Simulated scan of single mutants.
Amino acid sequence: MTENTAPEMTREAWLRRAVDVFRPRFVEVGMPLPEKLHVSVGFGFGTKAESKNILGQCWAGRASDDGVNHLFISPEVAETSKVLAVLLHELIHAADDCVSGHKDKFADVATKFGFEGSLLTLNPSETLAAEMVALAETLGDYPHGALSAATRMRTGEPEPEVPAADPGVPAAPRGRISSGPATQTTRMLRLSCKAEGCTCEGYAVRTSAKWIAKGLPYCPAGTQMTEG
């Protein structure tokens, strides 16, 4: 006979529990949450999203084939109370179906819940932050390890040094850390021809600072190019 053990709590199951805890708050302010929501972990989508610190994102129901809002919490976030604050922010968008952006109904409800300052970023008041800490103790730790490598790639921080392995212990694997596109290690600078009346009509190229240091190139019409 084997001993019965409780199944491991997934991130998504934990987030759904948190959503259920938040539901009464939305009823109290007269903007109830949709009965069905997709809540998961994932990166924000948008222009150059890989270089932005997007903590969470909500998609309107009309954006999905099943008509259900999709909410994502960034895999870079792991602190339980912060995850709850991000989730609450995104749930306000879901309750409004993203109609108001960060203004009007969204701003009204966010302020009632205790967010302050710029609503484009996560700014919980001291009271709301304390509530999230208390709720975190009730729900238990968020079962997630922060994807810290993504943060380092976004901010340009160096990889941490790996201590030498003990004799007989295989060294940690090195190299690529994701299956996505390779990180661009050289910043390409834009050069263009700004000479008024030049027949090249604003010819532009990109190159690295290494080659710019050796000399600025010329456009097809023979005019020296400049940065920008």
Rank of each mutant, 00 (worst) to 15 (best):
R16H: 15
R16V: 01
R17S: 14
V19H: 02
V19D: 02
D20K: 12
R23C: 03
R25I: 05
F26N: 10
F26G: 12
E28Q: 13
V29Y: 06
G30D: 07
P32W: 09
L33P: 01
P34N: 01
E35H: 12
E35S: 14
L37R: 07
H38S: 06
V39P: 06
F43D: 12
G44E: 05
F45W: 12
T47Q: 13
T47L: 10
T47Y: 10
K48C: 02
A49I: 11
A49C: 11
E50G: 05
S51M: 10
I54T: 08
I54S: 01
L55C: 09
L55K: 02
L55W: 03
G56N: 04
G56C: 12
C58M: 15
C58I: 06
C58S: 14
W59F: 15
W59D: 02
A60G: 10
G61I: 13
G61H: 12
R62H: 14
S64N: 15
S64I: 01
D66V: 08
G67F: 13
G67P: 12
L71A: 06
S74K: 05
V77Q: 01
A78N: 01
A78K: 02
E79N: 02
E79D: 02
E79Y: 03
T80H: 01
S81C: 08
K82C: 03
V83M: 06
V83I: 12
L84R: 03
L84E: 02
A85N: 13
L87C: 11
L88E: 04
L88C: 10
H89L: 12
L91P: 00
H93V: 09
H93P: 00
A94C: 13
D97S: 13
C98I: 08
C98A: 10
V99Q: 08
V99Y: 05
S100G: 07
S100R: 06
K103F: 13
K105W: 06
A107G: 09
D108E: 15
D108A: 15
K112W: 02
F113M: 15
G114N: 10
F115H: 05
F115E: 03
E116T: 04
G117Y: 04
S118A: 14
L119V: 07
L120H: 06
L122G: 04
N123C: 13
N123E: 09
P124N: 10
P124Y: 09
S125T: 15
E126G: 15
E126M: 11
L128E: 08
M132Y: 03
V133M: 07
L135P: 00
E137I: 09
T138F: 07
G140D: 08
D141Y: 01
